[in-house]
Lab assay of single mutants.
Amino acid sequence: MDETGKELVLALYDYQEKSPREVTMKKGDILTLLNSTNKDWWKVEVKITVNGKTYERQGAVPAAYVKKL
C-alpha cells in the first residue's frame, strides 16, 4: 500500500497499450491498483513524468502482467 492506503501492484512485464482504455507500463513499474474485480484486466493508475511534470493516467492492464505488493 502507498501512503494514502491504496493498494500497489508491480509490473512483471512490459505492456504497450492497444486502445485508449489501456495504459502502457514497463517491467518494474509500481502502479496504483484502482479495481481488480475483473479477473483478466485490472484498472490501474500510472504516474508519467514528462519534462519534469508528473501526470496521472488511469487505464486497464492485463492482470497476469502485474502482481499485488
Results as ranks from 00 to 15, higher is better:
residue 1 M to S: 12
residue 1 M to C: 15
residue 1 M to W: 13
residue 1 M to L: 13
residue 1 M to H: 14
residue 2 D to I: 14
residue 2 D to K: 13
residue 2 D to Q: 14
residue 2 D to C: 15
residue 3 E to W: 12
residue 3 E to K: 14
residue 3 E to L: 13
residue 3 E to Y: 14
residue 3 E to G: 14
residue 3 E to R: 12
residue 3 E to I: 14
residue 3 E to S: 13
residue 3 E to D: 13
residue 4 T to S: 12
residue 4 T to C: 15
residue 4 T to G: 13
residue 5 G to Q: 13
residue 5 G to L: 11
residue 5 G to H: 14
residue 5 G to I: 12
residue 5 G to P: 14
residue 6 K to R: 14
residue 6 K to P: 13
residue 6 K to E: 09
residue 7 E to W: 12
residue 7 E to T: 13
residue 8 L to V: 08
residue 8 L to P: 03
residue 8 L to Q: 10
residue 8 L to K: 11
residue 8 L to Y: 15
residue 9 V to K: 02
residue 9 V to M: 03
residue 10 L to Y: 10
residue 10 L to M: 14
residue 10 L to N: 02
residue 10 L to F: 08
residue 10 L to S: 02
residue 10 L to H: 03
residue 11 A to E: 03
residue 11 A to Y: 04
residue 11 A to K: 01
residue 11 A to V: 09
residue 11 A to Q: 00
residue 12 L to N: 01
residue 12 L to S: 02
residue 12 L to Q: 02
residue 12 L to T: 02
residue 13 Y to R: 15
residue 13 Y to G: 04
residue 13 Y to V: 11
residue 14 D to N: 07
residue 14 D to I: 05
residue 14 D to K: 03
residue 15 Y to P: 02
residue 15 Y to T: 00
residue 15 Y to R: 00
residue 15 Y to G: 02
residue 15 Y to F: 06
residue 15 Y to I: 00
residue 16 Q to D: 13
residue 16 Q to I: 14
residue 16 Q to K: 11
residue 16 Q to V: 14
residue 16 Q to Y: 14
residue 16 Q to L: 11
residue 16 Q to P: 05
residue 16 Q to M: 12
residue 16 Q to R: 10
residue 16 Q to A: 12
residue 16 Q to F: 14
residue 16 Q to G: 06
residue 17 E to S: 15
residue 17 E to Y: 04
residue 17 E to V: 05
residue 17 E to M: 11
residue 17 E to I: 06
residue 18 K to V: 08
residue 18 K to I: 05
residue 18 K to M: 10
residue 19 S to K: 05
residue 19 S to G: 12
residue 19 S to I: 03
residue 19 S to N: 11
residue 20 P to L: 09
residue 20 P to D: 12
residue 20 P to S: 11
residue 20 P to G: 09
residue 21 R to D: 15
residue 21 R to P: 04
residue 21 R to V: 10
residue 21 R to E: 14
residue 21 R to G: 15
residue 21 R to T: 13
residue 22 E to S: 05
residue 22 E to K: 04
residue 22 E to F: 06
residue 22 E to R: 05
residue 23 V to N: 02
residue 23 V to A: 05
residue 23 V to C: 06
residue 23 V to F: 11
residue 23 V to W: 05
residue 24 T to P: 06
residue 24 T to N: 04
residue 24 T to D: 01
residue 24 T to Y: 03
residue 25 M to F: 11
residue 25 M to A: 01
residue 25 M to P: 01
residue 25 M to E: 02
residue 25 M to C: 06
residue 25 M to N: 01
residue 25 M to Y: 02
residue 25 M to S: 00
residue 26 K to D: 02
residue 26 K to G: 03
residue 26 K to L: 07
residue 26 K to T: 07
residue 26 K to P: 01
residue 26 K to I: 06
residue 27 K to D: 01
residue 27 K to C: 07
residue 27 K to A: 12
residue 27 K to L: 04
residue 27 K to S: 06
residue 27 K to W: 04
residue 28 G to N: 05
residue 28 G to S: 03
residue 28 G to V: 03
residue 28 G to Q: 01
residue 28 G to I: 03
residue 29 D to Q: 12
residue 29 D to V: 05
residue 29 D to A: 06
residue 30 I to P: 00
residue 30 I to T: 04
residue 30 I to D: 01
residue 31 L to E: 01
residue 31 L to I: 06
residue 31 L to S: 00
residue 31 L to R: 02
residue 31 L to C: 06
residue 32 T to E: 06
residue 32 T to C: 11
residue 33 L to I: 03
residue 33 L to R: 01
residue 34 L to H: 02
residue 34 L to E: 01
residue 34 L to Q: 01
residue 34 L to S: 02
residue 34 L to G: 01
residue 34 L to M: 06
residue 35 N to G: 07
residue 35 N to Q: 10
residue 35 N to F: 05
residue 35 N to Y: 05
residue 35 N to M: 07
residue 35 N to I: 07
residue 35 N to P: 01
residue 35 N to K: 07
residue 36 S to Q: 10
residue 36 S to N: 07
residue 36 S to H: 07
residue 36 S to M: 10
residue 36 S to R: 09
residue 37 T to Q: 11
residue 37 T to K: 10
residue 37 T to D: 15
residue 37 T to N: 12
residue 37 T to V: 09
residue 38 N to S: 09
residue 38 N to T: 06
residue 38 N to P: 04
residue 38 N to Q: 09
residue 38 N to L: 07
residue 38 N to F: 06
residue 38 N to R: 08
residue 38 N to M: 07
residue 39 K to I: 09
residue 39 K to F: 08
residue 39 K to T: 10
residue 40 D to N: 11
residue 40 D to Q: 11
residue 41 W to M: 06
residue 41 W to H: 01
residue 41 W to Y: 07
residue 41 W to A: 00
residue 41 W to G: 01
residue 42 W to H: 02
residue 42 W to M: 02
residue 42 W to G: 00
residue 42 W to A: 03
residue 42 W to E: 00
residue 43 K to R: 13
residue 43 K to F: 15
residue 43 K to E: 15
residue 43 K to M: 15
residue 43 K to Q: 15
residue 43 K to P: 02
residue 43 K to H: 15
residue 43 K to A: 10
residue 43 K to T: 15
residue 44 V to D: 00
residue 44 V to A: 01
residue 44 V to W: 02
residue 44 V to K: 00
residue 44 V to E: 00
residue 44 V to S: 00
residue 44 V to Q: 00
residue 45 E to R: 12
residue 45 E to H: 07
residue 45 E to M: 14
residue 45 E to L: 14
residue 46 V to E: 01
residue 46 V to P: 00
residue 46 V to T: 11
residue 46 V to Q: 11
residue 46 V to D: 00
residue 46 V to S: 06
residue 47 K to S: 12
residue 47 K to D: 03
residue 47 K to G: 04
residue 47 K to A: 09
residue 47 K to H: 11
residue 48 I to S: 06
residue 49 T to Y: 11
residue 49 T to V: 13
residue 49 T to Q: 10
residue 50 V to I: 14
residue 50 V to G: 05
residue 50 V to N: 08
residue 50 V to T: 08
residue 50 V to C: 12
residue 50 V to P: 00
residue 51 N to T: 04
residue 51 N to R: 08
residue 52 G to D: 06
residue 52 G to K: 04
residue 52 G to C: 08
residue 52 G to L: 04
residue 52 G to N: 07
residue 53 K to G: 07
residue 53 K to N: 11
residue 53 K to T: 11
residue 53 K to C: 13
residue 54 T to P: 07
residue 54 T to C: 13
residue 54 T to A: 07
residue 54 T to E: 09
residue 55 Y to A: 06
residue 55 Y to L: 10
residue 55 Y to I: 12
residue 55 Y to Q: 08
residue 56 E to N: 15
residue 56 E to K: 15
residue 56 E to I: 15
residue 57 R to Y: 07
residue 57 R to Q: 05
residue 57 R to T: 05
residue 57 R to S: 04
residue 57 R to F: 08
residue 57 R to L: 08
residue 58 Q to P: 03
residue 58 Q to R: 11
residue 58 Q to A: 10
residue 58 Q to V: 14
residue 58 Q to E: 08
residue 58 Q to F: 06
residue 58 Q to H: 08
residue 59 G to R: 02
residue 59 G to I: 08
residue 60 A to Q: 15
residue 60 A to E: 15
residue 60 A to T: 14
residue 61 V to P: 03
residue 61 V to S: 01
residue 61 V to N: 02
residue 61 V to D: 02
residue 61 V to A: 02
residue 61 V to H: 01
residue 62 P to K: 04
residue 62 P to R: 05
residue 62 P to Y: 06
residue 62 P to L: 06
residue 62 P to G: 02
residue 63 A to N: 02
residue 63 A to Q: 03
residue 63 A to M: 04
residue 63 A to C: 08
residue 63 A to Y: 04
residue 63 A to H: 03
residue 63 A to D: 03
residue 64 A to I: 10
residue 64 A to P: 06
residue 64 A to Y: 09
residue 64 A to M: 10
residue 64 A to G: 10
residue 64 A to E: 09
residue 65 Y to D: 02
residue 65 Y to M: 12
residue 65 Y to R: 05
residue 66 V to H: 02
residue 66 V to G: 00
residue 66 V to Y: 04
residue 67 K to R: 14
residue 67 K to V: 15
residue 67 K to F: 08
residue 67 K to S: 09
residue 67 K to P: 02
residue 67 K to G: 05
residue 68 K to C: 09
residue 68 K to Q: 07
residue 68 K to D: 02
residue 68 K to G: 05
residue 68 K to P: 08
residue 68 K to H: 07
residue 69 L to W: 07
residue 69 L to P: 01
residue 69 L to H: 03
residue 69 L to N: 00
residue 69 L to A: 03
